[in-house]
Design a protein around this nucleic acid. Structure first.
Length: 271
DNA sequence: AAGTGGACCTGCTAGC
DNA sequence: TGCTAGCAGGTCCACT
């Protein structure tokens, strides 16, 4: 489910509501990717502060420490309709007077990890190695060109890796490469400076537009109030194998790169 | 060091 | 209808 736009849309949908709330209870379900790292009871009595985002992680700050949250492949955060009605896929509840923030995650690739601070372990360790935020002014064509030159993987793989720029997962990496008219199989060190400028623009604008549209709801993504996203309706290539490219009419293809599906137009996306 | 493939876990859909 | 294979939005880790 969640790439940067879905995570950001989720954040925007609950941050205001939960800020200042006092934790009155915590419920945990099945284990997620990593142990929480604190007795859930020890969170009771803390006050929620700001919710920020780094890549696809959310940092929910308390007056003391905070929780690093990740939605994995199938996670979502929502306010529970009423307390005590947790289903089999609900694995974390943060109960407050302003509502119960609930992580639902069928595949359990997501995570809830307590950390004493964002810049201390374990949070810092999980965030180490992340590339620039796409909306960071330092993320531009020159930076991207330089970073791509140091790698020899396919440019799609380089984007997905997150070590150069965070936030573009499988949907938006495919979409940004279409936007920039670059063949996803192109070796990253063969991308010219001019095309790197185009690609950096495409990554930024694709992610920004997706946030504006409320993310992509392919199957089950909802924000914390249950709203679906609309970006998927505008996807040009993702999930559209066999359909005509909206730019040149060539049939969109699906290939596999690094065990992930890549969708692209072999007509107008060039090496 | 960088690149590759497997691992984690569950649910859904298409096809026989 | 029931079973199976294949697929899914992420990313860490072990191995080459």
């Amino acid at each position: 489910m969640p790439e940067l736009p879905e995570v950001e849309v989720t954040r925007l949908s609950f941050a205001e509501r939960i800020r200042g709330a006092r934790v009155t209870g915590v419920r945990v379900g099945k284990p997620l990717r990593w142990p929480i790292g604190i007795e859930p009871e020890a969170l009771v009595g803390r006050t929620v502060g700001d919710v920020s985002r780094r890549g696809k992680y959310l940092w929910l700050a308390f007056d003391q420490g905070g929780l690093l949250l990740h939605l994995g492949m199938s996670g979502s955060l929502a306010f529970a309709p009423k307390a005590g009605d947790a289903g089999v896929h609900d694995h974390f509840d943060l109960v407050t007077a302003r509502g119960t923030l609930r992580l639902t995650d069928p595949r359990r690739f997501g995570a809830v990890v307590f950390s004493p601070a964002l810049d201390e372990a374990p949070a810092a360790k999980l965030l180490a190695g992340l590339g620039l935020e796409p909306f960071d002014p330092r993320f531009d064509g020159a930076y991207l060109h330089g970073a791509l030159r140091r790698r020899r993987v396919a440019v799609k793989t380089a984007l997905l890796g997150g070590a150069i720029v965070v936030g573009a997962g499988n949907i938006y990496a495919c979409e940004a490469l279409w936007e920039a008219a670059i063949d996803p199989r192109t070796r990253s060190d063969r991308i010219s400076r001019v095309r790197a400028v185009r690609l950096a623009d495409a990554v930024r604008t694709t992610l920004a537009r997706a946030v504006e549209l409320g993310g992509s709801t392919l199957r089950d993504f909802r924000d914390s109030h249950g709203m679906a996203g609309a970006f998927q309706l505008q996807a040009r290539v993702y999930g559209r194998a066999g359909q005509p490219c909206p730019r040149c009419g060539t049939t969109v293809r699906r290939i596999v790169q690094g065990a992930r599906s890549t969708f692209f137009c072999p007509g107008c996306q060039r090496r």
